[in-house]
Structures are given as C-alpha cells and as structure tokens.
C-alpha cells in the first residue's frame, strides 16, 4: 500500500463561508476527511479503548506493537505481548510489530522505525496512544510524531478514572488482569475479569492504598479478550502464574479465536 500524505486543513478546499445573520454564527469549514491512524497497541485495555474511540472519529488503518525484550522497559514491556497478533486478528486489523532490545533511548528509535513502517505500509497520518497520566510516555511519542510529521492523539489524556472504567465495562470490553505489581494485589487477582464486582473492589483498594483505579501507575496490567469491534473473542486455553512479593504475571500459554 502506498504512502498517503497527511492532508492538513491548509490543503483542503474549504466551502465558502456562510454567515448566519441572525445569530452571527459562522458555519464550519473544518476538516471533513477522515485520517488514517495507527494505534500504539499493547494488548491492554487502554490501547484497545482508544482504538475504539479513534474508530468512532477517524479510520484506524493498523495496530502498532513494540515487543520489548527488556522486562524493565519504561515504555513497552507488557505481559503476553506475544498475543498481540491474535488480538489484531480478532479486531480485523493489520499489525505492525517491531522488536526492541528495550534499552532506554534505543527503544525510541525502534518506535520511530515502527511508525515509519506503518506509514509506508498503511499510509498512516497520525498515531493514537493510550497515555493517561504519563508525561514521560506522552512526551516521547509526541516528539517522534513531530519528527515524522504525524498527528498524535491521546484520547485518554488526564481522563477521569471512574467514568473511563465505567464506560469500558458498559461498552462491552472484556478485560482480565494479567500482571500485578503492587500491594495489596495477591495472586488471586491474576486472571480476574474487570467486571462490576471487580471494579467495586478496585475502587475500595484505590481509596485505601492510594493506587490508581486504572492501573496507570503500573499497579496492574490488563489483557483484552473481547471488545465491541472484535469480530471474534479470545478464548484462553492455558495459563500459568508466577507470583512473589506482590509481583505476579499470568502467562497465557495458549489462546485461540472463538465465536462471540
């Protein structure tokens, strides 16, 4: 697929302005074409939620995954990232996957490489991220997008945690916890689905232990097994838990697509 250049409003032929005499309102001439976007994708709830949001406004052309070999990666480490391709298939979207050694600044070059590949293969004009609070992450993605002339969207930026989690559940996302990295989460949390009952418990924990309701502070990691735009759901067939000292991961050994 060829490169599709971004079409900023400057490049469009605007309709003639119409002046509403009564109210003094000027009829909009703003951008009407949809943009092709790539979504930075970890397999967790935030990236798939913003993908869903982006689909409502623009065209999501591909998902973009950075697979880090460094478990300490600030930007990209995620349990079960090896299942990103299965999730992309469930979403009916192509996946651009780039591996990184996960060295602190090197991985940003790998991200840049992934965005260039996404632009070349799918003509993306912009990037969507699931950043909520992390200025560190948002800044780095913004800088790379700026270098490449890509738009950058952060639809969850500074989002209220409570309405976000409510909307996630109401919209039909099915999300399980696959990593816990802080007290008081014990191994019973691994594999739990974030439904209304779990959300109530998370709410209590968030208040008592001053952790974020969304896990944005790195307290827990999630994996999406179904989303409103998935054509299939993910059926998990084999898992194993590794847990010690309030740190644990649910490794998904085998999973497949299943009818919804």
């Amino acid at each position: 697929m060829g490169i599709v250049q971004a079409a900023p409003p400057a490049g469009q032929t605007p309709p003639p302005p119409v002046f509403g005499a009564a109210a003094g309102v000027i009829v909009p001439n703003t951008r009407s074409l949809t943009m092709k976007l790539g979504v930075l994708f970890s397999g967790g709830k935030d990236s798939l939620f913003v993908c869903w949001k982006a689909m409502q406004q623009e065209e999501v052309a591909c998902l973009i995954t950075i697979v880090s070999r460094n478990p300490e990666s600030y930007m990209f480490h995620t349990p079960n990232i090896h299942l990103a391709a299965l999730q992309a298939e469930a979403a009916g979207l192509p996946l651009v996957e780039v591996e990184t050694a996960g060295e602190k600044e090197e991985e940003l070059l790998d991200l840049k490489r992934a965005l260039i590949a996404a632009r070349e293969q799918y003509g993306i004009e912009g990037v969507v991220t699931g950043a909520i609070l992390s200025v560190y992450q948002a800044t780095r993605v913004q800088r790379i997008c700026h270098e490449l002339g890509l738009w950058c969207f952060n639809p969850l930026w500074l989002a209220d945690q409570e309405p976000y989690m409510e909307e996630l559940i109401d919209a039909g996302f099915r999300v399980i916890i696959v990593g816990v990295f802080s007290s008081p989460f014990d191994d019973s949390w691994l594999g739990r689905e974030i439904d209304r009952r779990t959300l109530d418990e998370l709410r209590t924990i968030a208040e008592k232990y001053h952790v974020t309701l969304t896990g944005e502070g790195g307290e827990f990691e999630t994996f999406v097994i179904d989303a409103p735009f998935f054509t299939h759901r993910i059926a998990i067939e084999e898992t194993s838990k590794v847990y010690r000292n309030h740190n644990g991961v649910l490794q998904i050994g085998r999973a497949r697509l299943a009818e919804k």
């Binding site: 703003t30 969207f153 930026w157 500074l158």
Partner: peptide, 18 residues
C-alpha cells in the same frame, strides 16, 4: 481543534472542563 467533536477534544478540552 480541527473538527467539532474531534478525536483531540478529549485531550485538549475535556481536562479544562474537568
């Protein structure tokens, strides 16, 4: 932002509204 109800609204308008 570039369009009423755009994908950027949540990032640049909603935090001020909050």
């Amino acid at each position: 932002c570039y369009r009423d109800g755009s994908l950027s609204r949540a990032e640049f308008v909603a935090p001020v509204e909050r």
